[in-house]
Design a protein around this nucleic acid. Structure first.
Length: 202
DNA sequence: TATTGGATCGCC
DNA sequence: GCGATCCAATAG
């Protein structure tokens, strides 16, 4: 399934979080749940960097919930929120730094029928245009919290077919946070119709 | 042990 | 615009 040339090295994730958030655009993420593979192209991300970012779950240190964010880059951090939703992040930077990239939207590519059913929607653009929708489509739950994307058979990444040009990436302020609103740490692929929301000022 | 509010979504 | 719905974090 995963071709050898598509294998990722650990060092890919050991970069500054904001840079990783940009580098992940265009990569594909897949899950295999009960033998069913679903996934798509990452088109929107947000960076959360504990040491410098008040909006990050681990800005005030390690807790039971956020401990995965302190692992070495390349692990999966899934948390439960609003009493009903999951959100998925890819851990960044070296072990001991609490930082991760939130996956906000996918362009669906594999298992589209399954994802439409899981999401109870009819349109492909409604499958994963938001962080909790993405998790529902791929069945990313707390069962997958802490998985290593380099070795897991349940969740993994695949390299882009084509590297994005820098002018294809746009940045904006992050969505849904109350602290550190001024940091422009949301990144998305320009003109991609699977992005969750476009900023009004662009 | 009690309280509070959240990296959201979908319907009104 | 607002309610759903519940857990983690914090305060007491």
């Amino acid at each position: 399934m995963v071709k050898k040339k598509d294998k990722i090295s650990r060092s890919f994730f050991l970069t500054p979080t904001v840079l990783l958030a940009k580098k992940l655009l265009g990569w594909q993420i897949f899950t295999k749940i009960n033998g069913v593979i679903t996934g798509g192209i990452i088109v929107e991300t947000e960076a959360y960097h504990g040491p410098t970012d008040e909006a990050c779950h681990c800005h005030y240190g390690k807790t039971k919930r956020n401990e995965v964010m302190f692992k070495e880059g390349g692990h999966l951090y899934v948390y439960f929120t609003y009493g009903m939703h999951y959100c998925a992040n890819i851990v960044a930077e070296k072990e001991g730094i609490g930082a991760a990239v939130l996956l906000r939207a996918l362009e669906p590519t594999v298992g589209i029928e399954t994802m439409l059913r899981r999401r109870k929607v009819r349109e492909i653009k409604d499958i994963a245009n938001g962080p909790a929708k993405l998790c529902q489509a791929l069945k990313l739950t707390s069962k997958l919290n802490g998985e290593d994307l380099l070795s897991s058979s349940r969740v993994w990444l695949v390299k882009p077919r084509r590297v994005l040009k820098s002018q294809e990436i746009q940045c904006a302020e992050r969505i849904g946070i109350s602290k550190a609103k001024d940091l422009p740490w949301r990144f998305f692929i320009k003109d991609n119709k699977f992005v969750s929301v476009y900023p009004k000022h662009l």
